[in-house]
């Protein structure tokens, strides 16, 4: 299944730490055609249709509509919104908080906030997913900072960071393409930029705490976070 990636490989820098094969020249055109013949092509022969299922664009459209219904008090829409997003909210909470019970509480609080604040969502001002994850991250970070000391958090982050490079993603084609773009774009950051942004996001650390952990100057960490996120934004084409 992952072999489908072969025809996008030229776009990906060889720094991904994958097998040496990444340095090979472009695949021979013939083989590529052959490959595509025997498996599902990611470029569906239906380009004019709506955004493919599983892509963020399609998901955000659905979520925006659901938020509109939730703002009217629609519980079924709320349940559907939960089904579509709870894995993301809980997954993030777990990485920040580690503790299952605290993560569950946080998830519950986030969705209560969704229920109460759905009418505040403005699709002109950003995507539904970004809105939700902003609420979620803030909640998780507030919770972790009030319940654990920064040294506890750093220790836990260290223990859990192994799996962070291998975030589980859905099997849908749209998500998979998106995930590949993220891996590629994270590869355009310097190691220290990546580390600083991750420590802040999944570790719940402030820039000061990141600086202490990485034994770096405080202004430097602020620059790394700023430059790293801007580079990532540019690479991902966020507009």
């Amino acid at each position: 299944m992952t072999r489908v990636q072969a025809d996008r490989r030229p776009a990906r820098p060889a720094s991904g730490g994958h097998a040496n094969g990444a340095a090979n020249p472009d695949p021979i055109p013939g083989t590529r055609t052959l490959c595509l013949k025997v498996m599902d092509t990611p470029n569906a022969p239906n380009p004019g249709a709506t955004a493919p299922p599983g892509t963020p664009v399609e998901l955000n459209g659905r979520l925006s509509n659901l938020l509109g219904q939730i703002a009217q008090g629609d519980q079924a829409a709320f349940a559907e919104f939960y089904e579509l997003t709870s894995r993301r909210v809980f997954g993030m909470a777990r990485r920040v908080l580690i503790d299952t019970e605290l993560s569950e509480d946080t998830t519950q609080e986030v969705f209560l906030q969704v229920w109460q604040n759905a009418s505040k969502f403005n699709r002109e001002a950003g995507s539904a997913l970004a809105w939700l994850m902003t609420i979620s991250h803030r909640r998780a970070v507030d919770k972790v900072r009030s319940s654990q000391s920064s040294s506890e958090r750093e220790a836990k982050y260290g223990a859990s960071s192994q799996e962070i490079d291998h975030d589980s993603v859905s099997d849908e084609v749209g998500s998979r393409l998106e995930a590949e773009a993220v891996v590629r774009c994270l590869g355009t950051l310097t190691e220290t930029q990546r580390e600083s942004v991750r420590l802040a996001y999944y570790g719940g650390l402030t820039y000061r705490e990141v600086a202490a952990k990485l034994n770096a100057a405080v202004p430097t960490i602020k620059s790394r976070i700023r430059d790293g996120l801007i580079r990532l934004k540019t690479c991902l084409g966020v507009s």
């Binding site: 894995r87 809980f90 998830t107 997913l129 970004a130 939700l132 994850m133 995930a179 991902l236």
Partner: peptide, 13 residues
């Protein structure tokens, strides 16, 4: 938007 698109860990609640 960038963060929401980058950190996509999922776990079943």
């Amino acid at each position: 938007e960038t963060l929401a698109g980058t950190f996509t860990a999922e776990e079943e609640p």
